[in-house]
Write a protein that binds this DNA or RNA. Sequence first.
DNA 1: CGACGGCTTGAGAGACCTCAATGTAGGTGG
DNA 2: CCACCTACATTGAGGTCTCTCAAGCCGTCG
Lengths: 231, 231
Amino acid sequence: MAPAAVRLARLVPLGSEDIAALASAAEKRRIVRARRDLVTEGQDIGETRLIVDGWAARVRQLADGRRLFLSFLLPGDLIGLCRQPQPLAVSTVIALTEVSVCAAPSASSASRLDQAYAISHALEEAYLLSHITRLGRLNAQERIGDFLLEIYERLSMAGLASTDGFDVPLTQESMADALGLTPVHVNRMLQSLRREGDLDWKGRRVTLHDPASLAAKVGRAPIRVTRQPPP
Amino acid sequence: MAPAAVRLARLVPLGSEDIAALASAAEKRRIVRARRDLVTEGQDIGETRLIVDGWAARVRQLADGRRLFLSFLLPGDLIGLCRQPQPLAVSTVIALTEVSVCAAPSASSASRLDQAYAISHALEEAYLLSHITRLGRLNAQERIGDFLLEIYERLSMAGLASTDGFDVPLTQESMADALGLTPVHVNRMLQSLRREGDLDWKGRRVTLHDPASLAAKVGRAPIRVTRQPPP
DNA sequence: CGACGGCTTGAGAGACCTCAATGTAGGTGG
DNA sequence: CCACCTACATTGAGGTCTCTCAAGCCGTCG
């Protein structure tokens, strides 16, 4: 199963017809080059789409050039999920890597797939709240650790992480824009995390030596939006 | 019309039966004392509720006592709006003042009221994104100005602000917990904003002398989630 | 009156930023 | 194959914003 389907099927046990719908939707996927807009702020939000492969981010740019990533979109995440009839996008979404997206298979009300979408949406909100906490009350080292743990958690859901680590296509500069820091400071804090044996980051490969102890160190709590913890 | 109804009717022109439904729901309102939980993180989210009067906030508390307000809920805002069948609350909601809430009138799919709820939900997300930007990339003075402008905008929607200002039940400490600052620094930055003639804050009354110029000063852009700007 | 919560003020420290230079790896053209 | 370029990571020095700790002040309420 493709990572996107793995993720959604882990949110709600999907039927084989759902899996098939996801697979056939993915066949009609479209490639978006890195740095291109997937959604533009203030424009029509368009149909709901599903990220099949690659990373994207919701971004906001201030008039004086300051930039901040509001959230990241990974394989299996939905773009433009919304109940409103003619919604305008409240943020631009750009491709961080080459991204392949497809139209999200339509889900009849209260179907398994619809539930998966709803849970995905709830998770997205939970991640936004965590991001607020990160920016508001964590110091630089905690922000980095907490952020990487979140990414690890999310990639694991899609089967895209191994026990020891995962691949991230982010530069230190994009980390800085996500965490409200400067690239220079991200660099220094990564070094200190390396020195303290919490992680390695070579090329695009991140290795978390002991996720549990890192979580304890930065005070991260697991995120749950349903009664059943994910398998 | 009550402030809550004013707000919702401003999001979507409501029919008289919607207004009546809101009024009758409000009659069955319940009072929640200040500092009490309206929703508890990790618990069932319960029925969707509407704030009739008072202020509440979504709050997150870290293990070591650090605290952050994730968002504020004002009259006309909805609590627990969610498509998921058995959702768990991802954050605690506490009453900042005495709050009166009622069950949100049920809205049949695609009705006017349902649209209003959807737009309210979209706005809520937009405010979360603004909050992220605030915490991630604005300095203390900009955060305060931007935050007060947001509150002004939202209270205006419910008819709860006059041209010159509005009432806020917040202490400088709660401002600090919202903006990721310390109370001491909030105090000093408020003083500098006062000195520079941008605002007054006496008791619980905030006066913005020139909202437009303050908005320019802190680089705030208006928030839109629908094609039609609010009247 | 004393107690209390909230606001105000001061001095010093620390986290993070700015600016600027250097290092390094991959990619391209001659 | 080497020279060059670009993007990214790294390092240093100094500055500033925000924090910490502490004390004093003011209005309200019992």
